[in-house]
Amino acid sequence: MTHPAKLILDDYRRLFRDGIWDNNVVMAQMLALCPLLAVTGTATNGLGMGLATTFVMVAAALLISMLRGIITPEVRIPVFILLIAALVTLVDLVMNAYLYEMHKALGLFIPLIVTNCAILGRAESFASRQPVHRAVVDGLAMGVGFTLILVVLGAVREIPGSGTLFADARLLLGDGFAWMELTLIPEYRGFLLMILPPGAFLALGFILAGKRVLDTRLANRAAAVKMAQA
């Protein structure tokens, strides 16, 4: 008989694999592309937006799961949007007070987290139907997966675009992040296309293609191992 703790751990692993890779907000669901393409001129901006979105996803999942028994189906969508909007307003005010440079860099895309289809969609399809612990883990997994793709896309654009990595992390995120600032190509004049919107589309296309290729190879390898064991 399988120990209950192992079942829970395996369940959490599946949720994290789903959020980070198999059902990633961007790479699998193709959601939240507007902030993804708009704010990822640097990996620092991507990290800031990802952390803000992750907080909203986790807090929204927690609240919606806790209140799922008293929210009637007829009004669930307006209630979900109201809760998400309240959380986004809180994030917006906190960032404006304590991370002003990051707030200024991300601009309108902080309040626009309210319109992120991934948050509302996950609240409707998962958090409103699951116990609190699973809803929170799922929100965290989806947020981490979204943050990772934001940072990766930001890095893919920033390195060829300006020769740096996590530029201005200290100014945008605080002095504790100064160690992240790297100049990879000194005296580099930059490749402007990668910083502009077309560069975001190109970089995202290569990332999506890479995931498809890797998924295909992993599936073929798994099939080959299964046939060898048969």
Rank of each mutant, 00 (worst) to 15 (best):
residue 103 H to C: 05
residue 163 G to M: 14
residue 52 A to H: 05
residue 78 P to R: 14
residue 84 I to H: 00
residue 124 E to M: 07
residue 199 G to W: 00
residue 179 W to N: 10
residue 136 V to W: 00
residue 167 A to F: 09
residue 5 A to H: 10
residue 199 G to V: 02
residue 160 P to T: 12
residue 96 N to A: 14
residue 78 P to Q: 10
residue 109 F to Q: 06
residue 5 A to E: 05
residue 175 D to L: 08
residue 87 L to K: 01
residue 148 L to P: 02
residue 93 L to C: 03
residue 23 N to F: 08
residue 149 I to K: 07
residue 57 M to T: 06
residue 187 E to K: 07
residue 180 M to Y: 13
residue 52 A to C: 03
residue 51 L to C: 07
residue 144 V to K: 09
residue 175 D to I: 05
residue 60 A to S: 15
residue 77 I to E: 13
residue 175 D to W: 07
residue 58 V to A: 08
residue 36 L to Y: 08
residue 44 T to I: 04
residue 12 Y to F: 09
residue 10 D to A: 01
residue 71 I to H: 14
residue 211 K to N: 04
residue 118 A to K: 11
residue 12 Y to W: 04
residue 8 I to H: 05
residue 22 D to Q: 03
residue 31 L to C: 08
residue 112 L to E: 13
residue 105 A to W: 04
residue 113 I to V: 11
residue 118 A to S: 15
residue 225 V to M: 15
residue 130 Q to G: 00
residue 217 R to N: 11
residue 56 V to T: 05
residue 6 K to V: 03
residue 77 I to G: 03
residue 152 V to K: 12
residue 103 H to Q: 08
residue 17 R to A: 14
residue 79 V to M: 04
residue 45 N to F: 12
residue 32 A to D: 05
residue 78 P to W: 06
residue 129 R to P: 01
residue 157 R to M: 15
residue 1 M to K: 13
residue 218 L to G: 03
residue 158 E to N: 15
residue 30 M to Q: 07
residue 21 W to A: 03
residue 46 G to R: 09
residue 12 Y to V: 02
residue 68 R to L: 02
residue 109 F to Y: 08
residue 117 C to P: 02
residue 37 L to G: 00
residue 159 I to S: 05
residue 155 A to M: 11
residue 33 L to G: 01
residue 169 A to Y: 15
residue 186 P to I: 12
residue 181 E to T: 13
residue 138 D to S: 04
residue 201 F to P: 02
residue 76 R to M: 03
residue 18 D to Q: 03
residue 127 A to R: 00
residue 28 A to T: 12
residue 7 L to N: 10
residue 93 L to V: 06
residue 135 A to G: 15
residue 176 G to F: 05
residue 222 A to V: 03
residue 61 A to C: 06
residue 177 F to Y: 13
residue 32 A to V: 02
residue 220 N to P: 00
residue 177 F to K: 12
residue 166 F to Q: 15
residue 146 F to W: 02
residue 170 R to C: 14
